[in-house]
Design a protein around this nucleic acid. Structure first.
Lengths: 342, 342
DNA sequence: GTGAAAGCGCTAACAT
DNA sequence: ATGTTAGCGCTTTCAC
């Protein structure tokens, strides 16, 4: 068990003051370049490591940012986190990551832990059933910035990074319409959640653009689980007037639904054309491959983190009136192609 | 911006000493139960939160554990993390999570960050190409416990939690043999990595059990990526003596390979029976559904964390001579069923 | 059962 | 360019 080296040890050995050592280690401009080198070398030689707790205690900053996500195990979320990590690492921030497992109760507990760990800022994509803002207002009242991404809560003091879900919903629906579908069913999540509500708006706009009326029986609000995918297939099988197009706001759910439909004898895309959402790996593995919306996860993570850090540095003017919107993209695959390109 | 309450504030208000407040808050036995209640109530009322940095500075414990995983975006890994989180939360530990993105270089950087953050312990599943132990020996020399899980490095001072990969490899292969396969190809990862090396051993044992000779051309060491899956299909298509069974050590890779084979006109399982590994969601989405090995992720996370915390508490006798082995299980699906059950 | 006081390692006025 | 000093908020030994 080696003894921990402190700046006092370094100071004594080099016949300098602890203050000088501290400044040198922090690259303070007032310190002579040669002394800096001297100190850095000695520090390295003795295996010195800064005691972050003493430092945090003094500076009242932790250099740690909290991230709360619904689940880690989605291709999207872990890509977002990779993007966040890259940016954070580069400027010396650590990440405290936790998952709410889609439950507001757990999210609340996570937020509390983050608060007690004194994160400098908090990045959140909210759980499926989160509607109260209460567990975040403690942060706001202590001036700790909170930034939402993807699944956002709208609050005047919080930034947000999202894709244009309305446009994505429009693109997906419009594509089905262009393929000749006239009776499109939309399977989505809780409509109070921005990602689902906005996609529905896009869905409606696309229908309206073709002067198609909206049939509310064709809008299904589910939990987008695998079971929901199976249930949707069952429901379609029971329907009198069956849909000829299916826009499902989640790839895994869509893939399962497609599979169930195939088992019931439906041809995809012949009987039902399908579009999913997220560009999850499953979308490439099902047959036929699933048309979907590409979600720029890495970019979203980087943007969110850059925004957060800019806000912490005070370098970036903060405008929370408008969310930052990233570009998403329709990826057309076999599950929805009814017309050969001319 | 509210002012931060300290134990000094509480002490002054209640006309007690900071020492008493501190002890009460930490549930010290010597403190009168009534004073404890009094202090707890006041603390809650004023929104007091312990300054962990001051505390950590004093106690030289951080109550934070580091976790390094290859990638967050696998169903397996995020399930492991959920298990870890549950246990850690219950006993008041925080988790600092980072991903190595399968690179030893990044893993090394992560480890350094963890070290500088003074984690009390480190849990690691190593990257695809990690072979040196160097970046962990700093922890060992400072008596910070390091525990490996799933992808392990064998070291006398480090614990390990794994599944019995040899047995799983045996089960998978044996199943294919039982279905009548006689020429089984095994697609795997870097054989120096325990998870892949051990599975190969099981593969060999199963073949030997049927007195089948081992054909080294049927053992493919790849990176198990989606591209690898396609490449394997291509290779099989070119082979003179084609395999009748395929054991691929990763579900996504197996699914992609299956898809590519189907496109080339091969019947699955008729021409080639396939077994994957991990019970990833994709295994249920491909058609035919993929036979695979169930990996007990949640359990592994809980076990690893419990072991780590036991070691930190000194409550659990530490025996690093043997890894902890969890039970895995063959899940038989349509991709490998050649014989109807009699 | 409670208090006094020292010190964990660092940083930032304020000096020089 | 470098040094002196105080204090961040907590825990803990030693008193009483």
């Amino acid at each position: 068990m080696e003894k921990e080296i402190t700046i006092y040890d370094l100071a004594k050995i080099l016949a300098l003051s602890p203050a000088t050592v501290s400044r040198a280690l922090n690259d303070h401009p007032a310190i002579n370049a040669k002394t800096k080198v001297l100190i850095a070398e000695k520090a390295a030689e003795l295996g010195y490591r800064s005691n972050t707790f003493a430092s945090h205690l003094r500076t009242r900053k932790t250099n740690t940012l909290g991230v709360i996500v619904p689940r880690l195990n989605s291709n999207f979320m872990s890509t977002v986190l990779a993007g966040m990590e890259e940016v954070a690492n580069n400027v010396g921030y650590n990440l405290l990551i936790s998952q709410s497992l889609e439950s507001e109760v757990k999210e609340r507990a996570n937020a509390k832990t983050m608060f007690n760990s004194r994160v400098d800022g908090l990045l959140v994509s909210v759980a499926y059933d989160t509607y109260s803002f209460g567990h975040f207002s403690t942060f706001i009242s202590r001036n700790i910035p909170v930034l939402f991404f993807d699944r956002i809560l709208t609050h005047p003091q919080c930034g947000a990074v999202i894709i244009d879900n309305e446009q994505a919903g429009y693109d997906a629906t419009r594509h089905l319409l262009d393929q000749g579908c006239r009776r499109i069913m939309h399977v989505t999540g809780d409509l109070r959640r921005n990602v689902y509500g906005d996609r529905l708006e896009g869905f409606k706009r696309a229908l309206a653009g073709q002067n198609l009326s909206l049939d509310n029986r064709l809008i299904l609000s589910t939990d987008l689980s695998q079971e929901a995918g199976r249930a949707v297939a069952e429901q379609i099988d029971q329907m009198q007037e069956k849909p000829d197009g299916l826009f499902i706001a989640n790839d895994l759910c869509a893939a399962i639904c497609m599979q169930a439909l195939k088992e019931k004898g439906y041809a995809i895309p012949g009987d039902v054309a399908i579009v999913g959402f997220n560009n999850d790996p499953v979308s490439q593995v099902v047959s036929p491959q699933l048309t979907t919306i590409f979600y720029p996860g890495y970019q979203m993570g980087k943007t969110a983190m850059t925004t957060m850090i800019g806000q912490l540095n005070g370098t970036r003017p903060i405008d929370h009136s408008e969310p930052i919107i990233l570009r998403s993209e329709l990826i057309i695959r076999r599950s929805s192609i009814l017309l050969e390109k001319s």
